[in-house]
Design a protein around this nucleic acid. Sequence first.
RNA 1: GGGCCCGUGGCCUAGCUGGAUAAGGCGACUGCCUUCUAAGCAGUAGAUCGUGCGUUCAAAUCGCACCGGGCUCGCCA
Length: 575
Amino acid sequence: MDFKESIALILSEELSNPNFDKTKVFDLLEVPPNGLGDYAFPCFLLSKELKKSPVEISKEISQKLTDLISKKNLDFLEKVEPKGPYVNFFLNKSNLSNMVLDKIFNDNLINKEEPTKIMIEYSAPNTNKPLHLGHLRNNTLGLAISNLFEAKGQNVIKSNLINDRGIHICKSMLAYKLFGEGKTPESEKIKSDHFVGKMYILFNEKLKEDPSLEEEAQKMLVKWEEGDKETRELWKKMNKWAIDGMKETYQEYGTKFDNYFYESEMFGEKDKLINEGLEKGVFYKADNGAILARLPELQDKVLLRGDGTSLYATNDLILTQYKFDKFNLDQSIWVVCNEQDLYFKQLFKIFEKLGRPWAKKCFHLSYGYVSLTTGKMKSREGTVVDVDDLIKEIKELALTEVSNRYTALKPNEIEERAKKIALASIKFYLLKNDAKKDMIYDAKASISFDGETGPYVQYTFARSKSILRKAKKENINYIHNKFDLLKEQKEIELINELAEFTNSVEKSKDILSLHPLCHNLIAIAQKFNSMYQEIQILKTENKDLLNARLSLVEATCIVLKKGLEILDIEAIEEM
RNA sequence: GGGCCCGUGGCCUAGCUGGAUAAGGCGACUGCCUUCUAAGCAGUAGAUCGUGCGUUCAAAUCGCACCGGGCUCGCCA
């Protein structure tokens, strides 16, 4: 039983009112703002029922409970105090420290769940252009959510569906065929996916001069679907360029997958699905021969064009069936930007109407749109923030910082460290705000290493590690003992934040956004740094207190590292 | 026009299952490195929580309307 439950129990017993049983009291208990207590019970509802002033009620309850504490020796409570219409509870600090630190050292930080099998699909790049900032938010969120589920004990299959077919791919291909002059990424000495992206931009430039290119591309798609040899050869060549380049970026950034799907591969029979839908009356044929799903509650969705070629949705329907059949999933999560909210509602509705038993196991993790201060990013115009450029820029910045500070390090060590810091900076920046909210990418803020940033958390970790290293060097051995000696205000505040870690992970899982965890890590770092400034830990005279303090430092290290791991940020020992 | 989402100090955000002085960061200004890493710390200034009405003992939080912004609405992915 935790403290809140214990308080609810004694309070409900004291009230002995059927409308204020333990559960009700538990729900009413809240955490008061700055230092007014550890828990508070508001007396407004009670006031209504008893027809008495809440201030008076608060006084009475506080008096009774204070008597009870001394009578029954309830040592987890330090005191109970009335403050206006609230009864404020103060926990015994030594108890709190013991509970929190024991939990950390016993590796009991994250509440495990019954394991289920979950596929998390993210990134889903198109093979006509390199990855941009939008993908980066997706990749970062997708991996962090996967890590979070795994930390909670779930079996996660991280999947990436490569969108390697479709009209947009044909556009890059057509541009290359017509204007590429047989050049290659090697001959031009540029990263292979960027080479393909250039072709896509070239297509759109040429399209302005010659509108018939649109039709040409459409013809190419038909040829592709027919399996035309020459078209397929070109497609294979350019796809390899695109995918190889992207995999380099994934490798560089740390994006990981367990499984790749390629949209071009057949995962089932298209005709069979279409026929099933038509027979069940879920689909219908339009005048021009196109096949649509009838969704009066949303918007009808086109599944086959008039010319019979398939669309993204068609393949999604087929692939999802395959996913559930092959992997026996308990849940399938798509990490996709909120522009596609309607699309996923439609997709899931179709599953439901077709009577798929797994329809309700599908979930769209919708995250906010990333735009620039200059407006929306447009790949076809080349006004995007390229992932490779972004990483390079921030790495260089970090490199300058590290080089200035650590002249003694070898160049490769400097580079290594700079990279870890740079990636931490980007990842934290992309995860610290509510995932479902749109964001405007602020280049200046994203490259900052001060304040609420990944490097700040890394720095705090490095500082705490440094204390432990120095202790070891000076042969100061410590044991996990006498945590109740931690009574300084700064120490208590840090412990309170450490205690929040479990909740913050829980919250992040519930709302599928990492920002509660990020904010907790920042708060822990702030409290630690504040303590660090005020207390010279290694100068602590009392041996027992020194033990407790070093334990607290170690506990901070453990929690920060655990949190950063979920965010896929490396905790570094020195910085 | 229909649907979905958003609107909190100069800027970026947290808080939104209603509760006590609206919490952080950036930027600005003042201080603090012969002491465990100053990528740090301490402090100051800065907010009619888009507007109005309503529900309530109590509204940033719930409801409605309006204003402003974003996304989306059958043959893109």
